[in-house]
Design a protein around this nucleic acid. Structure first.
Lengths: 234, 234
DNA sequence: TAGTGGTCTAGACCACGGT
DNA sequence: CCGTGGTCTAGACCACTAA
């Protein structure tokens, strides 16, 4: 048994996340929702207040309540699952595998040697799409000694990050976050102007002492930001 | 004029954050708070619901409401102290105060009003230098209600972030990290080419429910990156 | 100035879970 | 069992602001 205020909230949320009500669209007045759901104003108010708290709705006295401009950001504390992030925003996720290769580590790269541990690497280039538009570019290396199953995974269907989150229990990760100007290849693939500021997120993930994967993701700066919320060192 | 439910919430929050009521302590029943604040149960309920949402309180039917066990947060990103960072790299730190102003909050800005809490703000623009070269640009607002001492601090000598870390025991912070192309003012102040990709770090810092400071820092992308190292959700 | 949301009241019935 | 919180009602007054 879901509560009534929850059903009202779900109703509104579906309209917003599905895109049926775009940003700036006025949502029904409280008295209209009272009539539609045959309930008191307090109940409607509680439902909308939760959406305001979630950042989906903004309210103005006399003006009404409106679908908020989307805040696009993700917690930096978590290892991001891009597919889940895109879908959480009500957009359709898509994946385009640009290249996939099994190869030996480049001996000149200390990082690759450490990841390979004497075995081969899987190298993946892919493009993440949201509503069929480029969302992020990803270059990834996976160590086959640490993750032998990666040799058989179909990364044209499941994004490598999502697959790895399921397949590997990681114990530690390190992010390096920087701003870069898009080069010509990145600009073309992401369909943005040359030199647009982009977030570059490099991540190394370990399981115990063993390197699991290195990844670099490029996000257009206008579409994406990272949010980290935390408390003082304990 | 603060609302009644807000005063009830502040009363409970003070007891919890001050440690007067330790984790596991039973907070007053709703009917007791109704009597103490001479209000209806809905109002008490709204106040406690906000504390549940904030993770400070857990509620059990028949048992009552209790101060929550503190959430385990892995220390992730530290609140950066730019002076310490520069000096840790063996470079000489310098500070250039560009503007400092005491003013009222802009009523059109929800964020400023929340920070001001009815009082004035200190607005600071400054430039951080490393070896006499520009390192980062900072725009900061400090709420004088939360931090009255900021009215007398000498931010031409001590960087505001460093001063605040000493002066205020913060309880929560949120970072928003994005990539931006430098505009003409930023490029001139930082002595970089126009449109260089920069990291924009916006941070809001709280002490309990009280906003302490908002700050936006701009770092040239080539000079700086952020590193976050952590373990899985705890 | 009229209509919106912001807040609050004084009740109500119910579900859950210690005693 | 019975007291707690969970949810809801049908009003109310007020502040703000867009028309």
């Amino acid at each position: 048994m879901t509560t009534l205020n929850r059903r009202i909230r779900d109703y509104l949320e579906e309209k917003i996340l599905s895109g049926a009500w775009p940003p700036g669209h006025r949502i029904p007045f409280e008295h209209e929702l009272m009539a539609r759901f045959d309930c008191s104003r307090m109940t409607v108010n509680k439902a909308i207040a939760a959406l305001v708290e979630a950042g989906l709705v903004v309210r103005r006295r006399r003006g009404g309540s409106f679908v908020a401009e989307p805040r696009v950001h993700a917690p930096v504390l978590a290892v991001p699952d891009i597919r889940a992030e895109v879908e959480a925003r009500g957009r359709r996720y898509g994946l385009k595998l640009l290249a996939r290769q099994r190869r030996a580590a480049d001996p000149r790269s200390e990082g690759e040697a450490q990841l390979a541990r004497g075995g081969d690497l899987i190298a993946i280039d892919c493009l993440h799409l949201a509503d069929d538009r480029p969302f992020a570019l990803e270059e990834r290396l996976i160590g086959l000694v640490a993750v032998p199953d990666a040799a058989d995974a179909d990364f044209a269907k499941v994004p490598p990050g999502t697959w790895l989150l399921d397949a590997v229990a990681w114990t530690e990760a390190e992010h390096r976050i920087a701003a870069v100007n898009a080069d010509s290849r990145q600009a073309a693939l992401l369909d943005i102007p040359l030199h647009t500021a982009c977030l570059s997120i490099e991540r190394r993930t370990w399981r115990g002492e063993m390197d699991v994967t290195h990844v670099r993701q490029i996000y257009p700066g206008s579409d994406y930001d990272l949010v980290a919320r935390f408390t003082p060192k304990s």
